[in-house]
């Protein structure tokens, strides 16, 4: 078996050095979004022309969508979500935040004043005791 030869391009290194993490992340997200939509089309059992017809678009527009370079509007993403039955835009932010706050309040209420105070003051000696106290109060 022939050993694989690898190559490190110096010119490519220069180009890569000029790419900021933010720029790469932006490209990654666009590509991942396109891949997500392409996969959903496949799962739905559609080809590009059929999906284009579903969306009321020309197939060339779909090619742009799937290229990984397209800047989608929110309206278009919502149309795609509805057509493919997938979630692209997360809209449960407030629900998650409310649940998190609710749990935090329950923990605070379950603690004795002294332990609550020690946690607020970030006294690590009482961290384990605080946890034990909380568990005791929840289970009785």
């Amino acid at each position: 078996m022939t050993k694989q030869r690898t190559y490190q391009s110096k010119l490519l290194d220069q180009i890569i050095d000029s790419i900021s993490p933010e720029e790469q992340q932006k490209t990654d997200k666009k590509m991942i979004l396109a891949a997500k939509i392409a996969n959903a089309i496949k799962v739905k059992g559609l080809n590009k022309s059929e999906f284009a017809e579903l969306m009321g678009k020309h197939p060339s527009e779909i090619s742009k969508w799937l290229s990984g370079t397209h800047n989608f509007t929110v309206d278009t993403l919502m149309t795609i979500e509805a057509g493919l039955g997938i979630s692209i835009i997360a809209t449960d932010y407030f629900k998650i935040n409310e649940e998190y706050q609710s749990v935090q309040i329950r923990i605070q209420n379950a603690l004795s004043p002294s332990l609550k105070n020690s946690i607020v003051n970030k006294d690590s000696r009482y961290d384990k005791d605080a946890q034990k106290d909380y568990r005791y109060r929840l289970t009785g």
């Binding site: 790419i19 990654d28 590509m31 991942i32």
Partner: peptide, 22 residues
Amino acid sequence: ELKNITQRIRSMANQTGAQEHF
């Protein structure tokens, strides 16, 4: 353009794979 192509290839290498529609 070369910078953009490089970014896309890196995305394919590390995130999505070289999917046909790219």
